[in-house]
């Protein structure tokens, strides 16, 4: 029988990690449906994910992280799933926390649950640039929405159908969905919760967050996007 919950794993050139991620999700949660969104990878990501037992959705070319996520959301809505969990394909997020996220969502106490790396004693390490960004976003978010979210940039989330129905529309910021999405949701009156999850620093270290120029651009873009979200009418 089809599950009512879909796990989506966006992946771009993750041949080293994707198998492990898919395997552990399948092992821990065999009753959940799982798709990998292969964002035009040039390596063996798609083949490895498929051989590990996931259904693979492949973009014909690289479209970016946000578009991959939205492809997953659309797939979920078209196939009538009620809940969705998103987890990164680089092995940074520990799949064992999926259950905790889902529990909160299914209880109905929140529309979207964010897996936070900062709430409890988590030995998560990241670059100084990224930390500056996170603190800045946290501050701007609090300023604009009054909401205090510790880990505004987390990609480890679970959401219900109400949020999905919103995310498949044009309001979802596909280029860098992050703190601006949280701001959007809080403006629209969605219930947001944050719970601690286990996260590892990126093993490969190939993340864009190590390039100061990209990080600066990202921070600028995100702050702009947040202010625009605040100014827009929905």
């Amino acid at each position: 029988m089809k599950s009512d919950t879909l796990v989506i794993v966006p992946a771009y050139n993750e041949e080293k990690n994707i198998e492990k991620v898919v395997h552990s999700i399948k092992k821990l949660y065999p009753f959940l449906d799982l798709i990998v969104i292969n964002d035009g990878s040039t390596d063996m990501t798609a083949a490895k994910a498929q051989s590990a037992g996931a259904l693979v959705l492949s973009h014909p070319f690289n479209m970016g992280y946000g578009v991959s996520l939205q492809t997953g959301y659309k797939y979920a809505v078209y196939n009538n799933y009620q809940y969705l969990v998103q987890i990164d394909g680089d092995g940074q997020h520990d799949p064992s926390s999926i259950g905790k996220l889902l529990e909160v969502i299914k209880k109905g106490s929140a529309d979207i649950v964010l897996g936070s790396r900062f709430i409890e004693g988590n030995n998560y390490r990241t670059s100084i640039f990224r930390m500056v960004g996170i603190y800045l976003f946290r501050y701007v978010l609090k300023l604009l929405s009054g909401k205090e979210i510790k880990d505004v940039t987390t990609g480890f989330q679970a959401m219900n159908r109400r949020v999905l129905d919103l995310f498949i529309t044009d309001v979802f910021p596909c280029d860098y969905p992050d703190a601006d999405v949280i701001l959007l949701l809080s403006r629209l009156g969605f219930n947001i919760q944050e719970i601690p999850v286990i996260m590892y620093s990126n093993a490969d270290g190939k993340s864009m967050h190590n390039n100061p120029v990209k990080v600066l651009y990202y921070i600028f873009k995100m702050i702009l996007s947040m202010f625009l979200t605040k100014l827009r009418k929905y």
């Binding site: 959705l57 014909p60 479209m63 492809t71 797939y75």
Partner: peptide
Amino acid sequence: KDLTQEITILRA
């Protein structure tokens, strides 16, 4: 973007 997503989902 929309077309790419549609194709991807249809194919899957």
